[in-house]
Design a binder for these strands. Structure first.
Lengths: 125, 125
DNA sequence: CGTCTGCTTCGACATGCGTCTAGGTTGACA
DNA sequence: TGTCAACCTAGACGCATGTCGAAGCAGACG
């Protein structure tokens, strides 16, 4: 045990807390892996990766489900299911305003995941 | 169609090629998502995330399977299976030297994944 | 050559995941 | 109030995945 970067909660991650050293510098504790793996898992589907990209790159900072669904050849419920997965992974937030539901990205956790994968030196292969 | 960042192959990624704009800047094309999602998927399991971390942070740049297996309460075949998953995702390389097999990380693809998640501005939530 | 050890592959099983259709819930609007 | 549209939830089905024990393969070492 002792002084590694401790296991953060999903809330911590979304609060924008610094979390973990890059995996190339320090071995991840089991608890941290258990917390972060679901986020990677959520991105591990092509449809969700595209959804995440569309949401994160939306010019207004948010995007309507009604703009997401027609971008795929999938049923509405299936898209809804994938959005729920992203929500439960803490990657996006949803808000209903009138008839439509809008999704926006949570930059905090994405930054955490990115820094975890960071290799530091931008060197060769 | 037209001038987005085109779909890269896994080989490109491991060759260290710059690949894709961050998903917060540009929507990922379907082909790119199809290529990158398996890498995230491979990291979407706590055991594999820890394995990846142990491999990437190995002081010698590589680590013996015989050092990985006892770190988990899982059977040898199960660890071997997870390592195969990481190999097929292009995240690690394996090399047999004498009795033991050594694994090392492929920094190229990890950098690609990290930059894909990059949110740019290190700002608030 | 025989045997032992380290790792992978094989076959099997339970669980999880992606997808669908059908049905519910919430809000807009006449 | 009634009706319509947008979105989510529920239930079901087939395929993928995580896990194991048993068997196979490759080097080391007498």
């Amino acid at each position: 045990m002792s002084k590694q970067t401790p296991a953060p909660s999903l809330t911590d991650l979304n609060a924008g807390m610094p979390c973990c050293a890059p995996i190339s510098e320090q071995r991840i504790p089991a608890e941290t892996a258990a917390v972060l793996a679901p986020a990677f898992k959520a991105l591990g589907d092509p449809v969700r990766l595209q959804l995440m990209s569309m949401i994160a790159s939306a010019s207004a900072g948010e995007i309507c489900v009604c703009d997401l669904t027609p971008a795929f050849e999938l049923s509405g419920p299936t898209i809804s299911h994938h959005l729920k997965t992203l929500r439960e992974a803490g990657l996006v937030d949803a808000e209903r305003r009138g008839t439509w539901v809008y999704y926006r990205a949570r930059p905090g956790i994405m930054r955490q995941l990115a820094s975890l994968l960071d290799v530091g030196i931008p060197a060769s292969v």
